[in-house]
C-alpha cells in the first residue's frame, strides 16, 4: 500500500508491504541506518524513534499505519541540533562504546530533556531502563544526561529575561 508521511522533516511517499515494521521501513526503504534492530520484539530499545513527537519502539509499529505521521530518527534529531549538547556530553564522557544502542539511547535521553527537565540520576536510570546497553556500565550515559540537564538549567535561568535563545546558542 502507499503511504505518505514526514520523516525528519521531509515528505516521503512509498509503497510498503503491510508486514514491514517501521525500523525496516526506515533502514531498508529510506536508507536511514542510524536506527537499529536489536531484538525485533520490543525489549531492547535500539530501535527507539519518535512518532508524532513521542518516543516509540520502531519494531512495534507498522509502517503502513503511519500514513500522515511525523517520524524523527537519530539522523533528523542530529540535523536539527536539538540534542547537540547531549551528543557532545556523550562524546566527552565516553557514554558510547560499540554504539549500537546509542541512537536509541539518545532518542530516549532526548525524551528526558524534552519532558523531564528535573530528572535526577535515579529518574534518568528509570527512564532509560528500557534501553539495553551491553558495553558501558550505564554510568557514563546517566552522567551525560545529568550533565546536559544541569547545563541547560543553568543556561535557562541565565537566559531568563533575555528573550528567546536558539538551541544552537546553548552549545
Amino acid at each position: 500500500m502507499m503511504i505518505t508521511l514526514t520523516v525528519n522533516g521531509e515528505r516521503v511517499t512509498r509503497h510498503v508491504e503491510p508486514r514491514r515494521h517501521l525500523i525496516d521501513f526506515l533502514r531498508l526503504d529510506l536508507g536511514l541506518t542510524g536506527s537499529h534492530a536489536g531484538c525485533e520484539h520490543g525489549v531492547c530499545g535500539a530501535c527507539t524513534v519518535r512518532v508524532d513527537g513521542e518516543i516509540v519502539r520502531g519494531c512495534l509499529v507498522l509502517a503502513a499505519s503511519l500514513d500522515g505521521a511525523e517520524v524523527t530518527t537519530i539522523e533528523g534529531l542530529t540535523d536539527s541540533g536539538e540534542v547537540a549538547d547531549l551528543q557532545d556530553q556523550f562524546v566527552a564522557r565516553n557514554a558510547a562504546q560499540c554504539g549500537f544502542c546509542t541512537p536509541g539511547m539518545v532518542m530516549a535521553a532526548a525524551d528526558i530533556l524534552a519532558h523531564h527537565a528535573d530528572a535526577d540520576r535515579a529518574a534518568i536510570r528509570e527512564h532509560l531502563a528500557g534501553n539495553y546497553c551491553r558495553c558501558t556500565g550505564y554510568q557514563a550515559i546517566v552522567e551525560a544526561v545529568a550533565a546536559t540537564l544541569s547545563e541547560r538549567a543553568i543556561h535557562t535561568s541565565a537566559d531568563a529575561g533575555r528573550g528567546d535563545r536558539t538551541r544552537e546558542a546553548r552549545r
Partner: peptide
C-alpha cells in the same frame, strides 16, 4: 507498565 516508549503506544 513496561517503559516510556511502550507506554506511549
Amino acid at each position: 507498565i513496561a517503559h516510556p516508549a511502550i507506554r506511549n503506544r
